[in-house]
């Protein structure tokens, strides 16, 4: 999960599927996921149709297959781990495959949506459909400072490692916790500065 992963595909903004309004894409993704989720097990072949439709949508998006595959590999284990449990019940083999297929298709849909739609546009859609302003502001600020803070944590951790000579396990937990504690303190101080800056720019 890196910054490159997030921004991937956004350089392709001129492509047709990227140019579609974000609202349309979000509604389509939601509809698609609801449809996939509600396919009953007796009609499992419909999953193949859904997969074909998703494949067709993925081609004009011009997202690289490597990127899509990597995202699936990153998130997939969680779904598969949970689904593995269904193997421990009678008749679990088919249920397992069915669950994994559904989860992977939904995952693919969301990855496609995230790859073709900048997050700022999704936020704009959320604002248009009257999501509470406090939530949208929180999400926008979170997106803005996600990588700022995680970079900061990385720098603090590196600085700490270079000053701490004993790589003892208990020590390293304490070190990481100190990094997190100070990260929160810095975040709360940054929030203070951000508020001042927001007010200076006419935030209500």
């Amino acid at each position: 999960m890196t910054r490159a992963d997030l921004a991937h595909g956004h350089y392709l903004l001129g492509r047709p599927i990227h140019r579609l309004p974000a609202g349309v894409k979000m509604a389509a993704a939601m509809g698609g996921i609801c449809a996939i989720v509600s396919i009953p097990r007796a009609h499992a072949p419909w999953l193949a149709a859904a997969a074909a439709a998703l494949g067709l949508a993925a081609i004009p998006s011009r997202l690289s297959w490597k990127f899509l595959a990597r995202r699936m590999v990153l998130v997939g284990p969680l779904a598969i781990g949970a689904a593995l449990l269904s193997l421990f019940q009678p008749g679990g083999g088919k249920a397992f495959l069915f669950l994994v297929a559904k989860a992977v298709l939904c995952l693919f849909t969301m990855t496609l949506l995230a790859g073709t739609t900048p997050f700022a546009e999704m936020l704009r859609v959320l604002r248009t459909i009257r999501m509470p302003a406090l939530l949208v502001t929180t999400a926008a600020l979170m997106y803005r400072y996600l990588f700022v803070l995680s970079d900061e944590a990385g720098r603090m951790k590196r600085a700490r490692t270079s000053r701490t000579f004993t790589p003892h396990r208990a020590r390293s937990w304490w070190n990481s916790a100190t990094v997190l504690g100070h990260l929160f303190i810095r975040a709360s101080e940054r929030a203070e500065r951000i508020y001042t800056a927001m007010c200076a720019r006419g935030w209500p």
Binding site: L141, M142, S150, S188, M198
Partner: peptide
Amino acid sequence: RVPLLGLSAAFVFAA
């Protein structure tokens, strides 16, 4: 304190 909510969310993610 409103920005603190967003920053805390980013903090949880970074953590």
